[in-house]
Structure formats: C-alpha cells, structure tokens
C-alpha cells in the first residue's frame, strides 16, 4: 500500500465523526489516523462538509415538518374513522364492471413504461414480450402487499417482492410499487394478483393455489384482501 493511499473507509470515518464508535474501536481508529495523513485529510474534508451542510440545511424545516405531523397523532380517536368511512363509500359507488374496481380494501392498476413516462394499461389491452410493467396497488391503510402472476403456461411468479416468500411492507401513501417487471416470451393470457393485509403474511398458500389453478380470493386467509387483473400477451 502506497503512502498516499487511505486506510480507513468513509463509512467508519462517518461513525467516528458522529462520535458513535465504541471506546476500543475509537482508540484503534485514532491510532491509524495518527499514522495516515490521507485519512486525516479526508476526516477534515468530512468535518468541513458537515459544517457547511448544517449552515445550508439547518434543522428548522425538518422539525417544522415533524411538528406539523404531530397534532394528527393527538386527534380524537373517532376522527380516525373518517378516512375509513370515506373508503367504504368509495367501494360502494365504484363501477363494478371496471376490472380495477376496489374490492374489499385493495385495488390494482398496471402501468406500462413508455419512454421516460408510463401509460395505464386499460382493460382488455394486449401487451408484448419485453414490455415493462409497474404496479399501482391502492389500499386503505398501511400494511403488507404482494403481487403475483400466473402466465399462459401456468407458471406462477412472485413479482413483488420479487421472488419473495413473504409480503413486503407497504405504505398507503405510496401506491406505486418499486417493482418494474419486463415481460418474458411466454404468450397467452396472464392474471396478475395484488394481495394486501395489515399484518405480515407468507405467500406459500398463494403460490400453491395459483399453481393448482385456484382463485386466490377463494382461498385467501382472513384479513388478506385480493384483487386481480388480466391481460393478453401476444
């Protein structure tokens, strides 16, 4: 190792600078610092950057944002029912013939990536191998979601969390899931399912049911809402 090479990675210097190292680890790091001018120089860079950051981005706006959310946690309990009541009304008036109907507490919309943007996949649309899909899952509350599919050959895939065995955490304020799936070469009809629950849940029952060609809403455990949409791939 040459004299100009650093010996301490930034992540450890960050921990040191934040005074978050245990005494023994701090002592070891300081011994290395004493012998390494490049690492001392980097530490000073980080220290200066920290000072500049706090001048440019003081804590005030963050604290204001935190405090603005604080009163919501102290609202009367009955006010929490208002969004739930609104959602139940929404379920009642949504056209039933719309395949993206909100059933129970979850809805599913597919979006196909087009250039830098995306386009909603309309009912009855035909997609092609290579199309990239994203999933918008809307539920009334935070919890856990999963997206699965059964393709024209009966192959079952867990799209979100990709290849996972358990549902992923979900925030109702972020309905567009981070998953982006490129459709493969298998043609035919494909059904995509969105599952939502307030509590964590495993996916083995869903994978098994789809593999056997069963409807998920018929076998879903209590507390797991199911929605599905289909499309043809040609």
């Amino acid at each position: 190792m040459s004299a100009g090479e650093r010996r301490i990675k930034d992540a450890l210097l960050e921990r040191y600078l934040s005074d978050a190292l245990a005494p023994e680890a701090r002592g070891q790091l300081e011994s290395v610092l004493a012998e390494s001018a490049p690492d001392r120089a980097r530490l000073e860079e980080l220290r200066a950057d920290s000072a500049a950051f706090l001048v440019q981005h003081p804590p005030g706006p963050l604290v204001a944002r935190y405090e603005a959310a604080e009163p919501a946690r102290r609202r009367p309990w009955w006010l929490l029912l208002v969004p739930a009541l609104a959602a139940s009304v929404l379920v009642g008036v949504w056209p039933r013939e719309n395949p993206y109907t909100v059933k129970g507490t979850v809805s599913l919309v597919l979006h196909r990536k087009a250039g830098d943007g995306s386009a909603r996949v309309e009912p009855g649309a035909t997609l092609a191998p290579g199309d990239v899909l994203q999933f918008e899952v809307k539920a009334a509350e935070d919890g856990y979601v999963a997206v699965l599919s059964r393709d024209g050959q009966g192959t079952v895939t867990v799209y979100h969390p990709f290849g996972g065995t358990e549902a992923a955490r979900y925030q109702a304020t972020r309905p567009m899931l981070p998953a982006a799936i490129e459709l493969d070469e298998v043609r035919g009809h494909e059904e995509v399912y969105a599952l939502h629950s307030r509590e964590p849940f495993a996916l083995d029952w869903a994978v098994a049911a789809l593999t056997e060609g069963k409807r998920l809403d018929a076998v879903a455990p209590r507390g797991v809402a199911v929605e599905h949409v289909g499309f043809d791939k040609r």
Binding site: D10, E14, L17, P59
Partner: peptide, 15 residues
C-alpha cells in the same frame, strides 16, 4: 430531533 439531526444529519445526507 434537532440534536439528532445536528449530530447525524450530515453523515445521513452524504450516505
């Protein structure tokens, strides 16, 4: 929160 941000904010931002 203010104290946490002052102590760890720059490192979090750099990360």
């Amino acid at each position: 929160l203010t104290a946490l941000y002052r102590r760890f904010g720059p490192a979090v931002h750099r990360r």
